[in-house]
């Protein structure tokens, strides 16, 4: 399924909705969206992943990149990720650095 991303950037919260499959091709699109918000005073990055059916390490690298680029105080919320994507986050220890939620605001 083709990858799609929608961004809504508010004063402190950037909300990105991801659809389809996130691989090393589509991760470039995701990273471009992060770069666009990187110089804004964002406190929370909300990633809606309910419709994301696949994520490779290229997607994980963009998560790491987000924190490194925007700053350590950035809170990353992942909303409704599919079970297999939670497995990937867990296996790689990234679930400790993000907050997995059913909805946002929590």
């Amino acid at each position: 399924m083709a990858f799609q991303i929608e961004s809504v950037v508010g004063e402190q919260v950037a909300r990105l909705t991801l659809h389809g499959e996130l691989d090393s091709l589509s991760a470039r699109v995701f990273q471009t969206e992060i770069e666009k918000i990187a110089n804004q005073p964002i406190e929370a990055l909300v990633l809606d992943m309910e419709d994301l059916s696949f994520m490779s390490s290229a997607g994980l690298r963009v998560l790491i990149y987000s924190k490194q680029k925007i700053g350590p105080k950035l809170a990353i919320y992942i909303v409704k990720p599919q079970e297999l994507i939670v497995d990937t986050l867990t296996k790689t220890g990234l679930q400790h650095s993000v907050t997995i939620v059913d909805q946002y605001p929590v």
Partner: peptide, 16 residues
Amino acid sequence: TKSLEDREIGGLGIYL
């Protein structure tokens, strides 16, 4: 177990 800001980007793909 490192936090994201201390992570080196790489090796995760082969690990998975």
